[in-house]
């Protein structure tokens, strides 16, 4: 089974809920458990929120792009912004590291993405933007043979 979906929306906080629900709906054809749906929603929410808060510093005018694909039983999600980028990715991914403690951020976004997805990769170029690539294997779909 192969399927792909792309979307682009304004980098504003009101779109965070819409983005995570859209990805969760896209993956529904794989029959995810409620827990898997929560995992995906949390991870997508983290990546999109980071684009809004950090990528574009909460300023309007930026766009967030999401590309999702399903390949067999694996969900692949990419969240992209063309914001300010990350100088030190390794440091940014450490638990509790945040550059915005004054905004009540806790530095748990990347650790949550890591905890709830099977694979996390962060690509970023300062001044150009950030792409977060996540993968998650969904359930154990029983093998019903090749239907093609």
């Amino acid at each position: 089974m192969k399927n792909e979906m792309k979307m682009e929306f304004d980098a504003i906080s009101a779109n965070e809920a819409f983005a995570r629900v859209a990805v969760a709906a896209f993956v529904s054809e794989l029959d995810p458990t409620l827990e898997e749906i929560s995992d995906i929603k949390t991870a997508v929410s983290e990546a999109v929120t980071n684009a809004v808060i950090h990528g574009y510093d909460g300023l309007e005018g930026g766009k967030v792009n999401i590309r999702c694909s399903i390949d067999q039983d694996v969900l692949h999600v990419e969240v992209m912004d063309k914001g300010k980028g990350i100088d030190d990715i390794e440091k940014a991914m450490e638990p509790l590291f945040t550059t915005k403690p004054e905004l009540n951020r806790s530095g748990m976004g990347f650790p949550f993405m890591e905890a709830f997805m099977d694979d996390l990769e962060v690509l970023s170029v300062p001044g150009e933007g950030t792409t977060v690539i996540m993968k998650k294997k969904i359930g154990c779909i029983p093998w019903i043979g090749d239907e093609e």
Binding site: K41, T42, S45, T49, L103, N104, R105, S106, M108, F112
Partner: peptide
């Protein structure tokens, strides 16, 4: 639903 914002 809760994400890291709740932790913050």
């Amino acid at each position: 639903f809760m994400d890291s914002s709740g932790i913050g």
